[in-house]
Amino acid sequence: MTAAPSVAAPATAAAPDAVAARVRGLRKTFGATVAVDDVDLDVPAGAVLGMLGPNGSGKTTLIRMLLGLTRPTAGTVELLGHAGDDLTAALPDVGALVEGPGFHPFLSGRDNLLRAATAEPRLDGDLRGPVDAALERVGLADAARRRYRGYSLGMKQRLGLAAALLVPRRLVVLDEPTNGLDPAGTRDVRRVVAELRDAGATVLLSSHLLAEVEAVCTHVAVLQTGTLLVSGELRALLEADAGGLVVSTPDVDDAILALREAGAPSYRAEGGVAVPPGALEAPEIVAALVGAGVAVWEVHRRRAHLEELFARLTEEDA
């Protein structure tokens, strides 16, 4: 209850804890199918890592191996400093919503959570307090005593989230958490993730919704057909992918001519003319254009979107 929600976790942690989860050479095959192929990934402590990838890219299999639900064909998993046979020792501090919520239809949402709470090592004494708090947190307090059988998809998803949040966690793993949620539900998930991040917990979030990841994540990992294409801090990735300038102008053809004369190759782009990085700096470009009598509305640095990054990465690979 009043136990300060896992503030202790990340910032002060020693070197091994700087990484909440780490996988090396992780591989999983089902028969001839390679689900996850030689993945190396670090989830920094305190990060909100979004795992991106189209359906079937191996996100869920990777998460299941990370949590010890599936045995890797090869490779190692380290979770909150625990590895190998000891991996499950990390699980009391890990909350997870994997492959959708799993509950018994004949029990109410609250009774389902009470049953889940009996299995939580970190809970002691009266279990009703934490259960009701978790229900409140995901906005299910009103429907808590209704049977799970009658829940909508969104309510089921919220209950699954509540189960992951029964105990203050150091790591929360959410596999497609906004599946079936309405916009309000999606907002609630974002709020919960932000709260977790603020409390110092690490969050690993898988999704195929790029906007959702971009909105809440600090880090990102992109998977395709079992291979990790890229991973790292979201801002750094986007900046690295960004570059050049975009000139807003009504006189696109004149601008391209003028820039070519000034020694900067450019091309027509949405909203004006795009100038790749390298040749000229912004002031020189503006000077060249003004000198050539081209009307300039605006010059701004070209900002990359996750969507472009993702499209570029996955298309390159294909």
């Binding site: 949590l67 010890g68 639900l69 499950t88 699980l91 009391p92 890990v94 997870a96 994997v98 492959e99 959708g100 919520p101 799993g102 509950f103 018994h104 239809p105 889940a116 299995a119 939580e120 090592p121 189960a163």
Partner: peptide, 14 residues
């Protein structure tokens, strides 16, 4: 089948 076994294994129950 209900997906609840996963929850018990993740708790973890052992």
């Amino acid at each position: 089948a209900h997906g609840t076994l996963r929850g018990l294994l993740l708790a973890p129950v052992g």
